[in-house]
C-alpha cells in the first residue's frame, strides 16, 4: 500500500489525480514526512514549468484584480502554528533527516568544492532570473506598446516598450547568420546620435536584450558589426521609429 501510494507523488504534484485519489494521497501526506518533503520539492519543480508559458494578460485585468482585492476581505491564517524560528528548525531537521535517509549528505573537501561550484551556478541562475523578471515587468506594464520590423534580408526585430519603466525588450529572431566574426548590435538614436544599446554574442542570429533610455529616443536600430560591437554603427540593417 505504502509503496504504491508513494508512486503517486509525481501525479499528485502535477494535479493529475482524480478527486478520490487526491484526497487519499492528501491523507497519506499528513502522516508521511518524507512524502511531504518530496511533494514540496516536486511542487517547486512543477512551478518552474509555469516559467515557460508566459503570456501577457490584457492591461485592464490588472485594474480589475486590484479593484476586487480592495473590496475583498482576507482570511485569517487559521490555527496553523506561526512561522517561527522553531518552525525553521523543524524544517531543517526534517530536511536533514530526509537527506541523510536518502544518503545525500555529503562531507569533506569534495563537498566544499561542490558548494563553490553550486554557488557560481546559482549566481548565474540568479542573474538570469533577475533579467527575466525585468523583462516580465516590461511585458506586463500597463502602458506597453509594440514596434516590429521585418528586415529585407530576413528575420524579425521586435521591440516591446514601456515608457513608464523607460525600458524596452528587443527581440531578434531568425536574422541572417552573421558569421562567427560578426555581431548584431542594437542602437538607440536621439537627435541622429546613435548610442549602443547592447551587442549580441558573435555569430548569434537571435537574442533578447533589455534596452533602457528609450523615452527620449527617436529611433531604434540594429546593425551588423565586428564581433563585440563598434563605437558607431557602420551598416544599419533595421530601423524602427519610436515616436
Amino acid at each position: 500500500m505504502t509503496t504504491e501510494i508513494h508512486a503517486l507523488a509525481g501525479a499528485y504534484a502535477l494535479d493529475a489525480l482524480d478527486d478520490i485519489e487526491r484526497a487519499a494521497f492528501g491523507r497519506h501526506l499528513a502522516e508521511c514526512e518524507t512524502c511531504a518533503l518530496e511533494v514540496t520539492e516536486l511542487r517547486e519543480t512543477t512551478a518552474r514549468l509555469a516559467d515557460v508559458s508566459w503570456s501577457v494578460p490584457p492591461p485592464r485585468l490588472r485594474e480589475e484584480v486590484l479593484a476586487r482585492v480592495s473590496r475583498t476581505r482576507q482570511v485569517s491564517p487559521g490555527g496553523r502554528p506561526g512561522r517561527s524560528g522553531h518552525a525553521d528548525r523543524t524544517r531543517w531537521r526534517r530536511w536533514t533527516a530526509a537527506a541523510a535517509a536518502a544518503g545525500i549528505l555529503a562531507v569533506g573537501a569534495g563537498a566544499a568544492t561542490y558548494a563553490v561550484q553550486e554557488g557560481r551556478v546559482r549566481d548565474e541562475r540568479t542573474a538570469a532570473r533577475e533579467q527575466a523578471a525585468r523583462i516580465e515587468a516590461v511585458l506586463s506594464a500597463p502602458d506597453v506598446r509594440l514596434r516590429a520590423e521585418t528586415p529585407t534580408q530576413g528575420g524579425r526585430v521586435t521591440l516591446v516598450i514601456s515608457d513608464a519603466l523607460d525600458t524596452g525588450v528587443a527581440v531578434l529572431t531568425g536574422m541572417p547568420d552573421p558569421g562567427s566574426g560578426k555581431s548584431y548590435q542594437l542602437w538607440t538614436i536621439v537627435d541622429d546620435q546613435p548610442k549602443s544599446a547592447g551587442v549580441l554574442p558573435a555569430g548569434a542570429a537571435e537574442g533578447t536584450k533589455l534596452v533602457t533610455g528609450l523615452r527620449d529616443a527617436d529611433e531604434f536600430a540594429v546593425s551588423l558589426e565586428k564581433a563585440g560591437g563598434a563605437d558607431a554603427p557602420t551598416a544599419i540593417t533595421t530601423k524602427l521609429t519610436l515616436t
Partner: peptide, 20 residues
C-alpha cells in the same frame, strides 16, 4: 495576438532555456 508572438519569442530565451 502580437503580444503572444513576442512572448513566445522571449520565452525561447533566458531562464526558460534552462527549463527547456
Amino acid at each position: 495576438t502580437p503580444y503572444d508572438e513576442v512572448v513566445d519569442e522571449v520565452t525561447a530565451h533566458l531562464e526558460q532555456q534552462q527549463v527547456r
